[in-house]
Design a protein around this nucleic acid. Sequence first.
DNA 1: GTTCTTGCAAACCCTTTGCACGTCT
DNA 2: AGACGTGCAAAGGGTTTGCAAGAAC
Lengths: 160, 160
Amino acid sequence: MEAPEAKPTAVDMDELKRHFAAFLQEQRYRNTSERMRILERVAEMPGHFTADELYVYMHTKGDKVSRATVYSTLELLRQCDLVVRHSFDGGSMKYELAARLPNHDHLFCTDCGRMVEFCFPQLRELVQQIAQQYSLRAVRHSLHIFARCPRLAECPHRLG
Amino acid sequence: MEAPEAKPTAVDMDELKRHFAAFLQEQRYRNTSERMRILERVAEMPGHFTADELYVYMHTKGDKVSRATVYSTLELLRQCDLVVRHSFDGGSMKYELAARLPNHDHLFCTDCGRMVEFCFPQLRELVQQIAQQYSLRAVRHSLHIFARCPRLAECPHRLG
DNA sequence: GTTCTTGCAAACCCTTTGCACGTCT
DNA sequence: AGACGTGCAAAGGGTTTGCAAGAAC
């Protein structure tokens, strides 16, 4: 049986911008060039990234934005569900475009450090069942699995 | 059907101390009064706590330990699996005695802020299945579910 | 013109580190 | 005696904030 890797979704930039503009207008926030530029650059990031990585990337592209604006705009993008923020153990916050990999989870090999993103429909169902036990409706979830190779020497991705 | 709340396990303090002492000896770390005292106080904490909360608690009890020692001992307790560390979204690290609530997960109501700890055997199985798809053996997992009340006004735990 | 946003730097919080002193073996 | 652990304070990294200048409405 094939392992269900999560696959990137094609991103419709205009759609994202419309979504963001609508959110800003609705919330009486201003539609500034910095905010839209940040959304564009977020969509160019390949997967997870930190606020600082985005800041550095934008400066290599010649964009003039401050870290403060990067942080505050990422927070706005999060409020309107265009980006998701992850708190992986011990590190700084990781952001990611929500449209890129809908509803995926993370598996970490603690032997080699490899991270796999996967998508299991059964998990979605189970999560919904669990929430229902408490008369709630699950909106989002985050599952981290920490695993090891049965025989370390044969781990095909081990470090070193 | 009854919602499966995770139930605290009775804690055998002597057993914990033996486990920790054995770990220290095996790793050639020293068995100091500070380290054992910290383990005792960890066992007195009701649930999740931050390193600083433990530090403050110990000082209310008259223990003289520094923050540095609290942090480093919590790390040792983590290495020998006596405590687990959680990284909840946006906040500081939360620690918890592993023996207290074995293998539980977390459900957050985003309307009222309530957090429920639950334990679903099916989830364990599913997690193991997922890891097997990648030829790995799951060791630990962490599932956070974010959910809402179907009708907010009726949320029995809503804030305000 | 008023209010919000930006950029910069400083502040902030949590955690780790360097060093002198104390303690365990 | 030697090596490790502790306590203190300072450093460190990531994120937020205060304020003056600039842009959106």
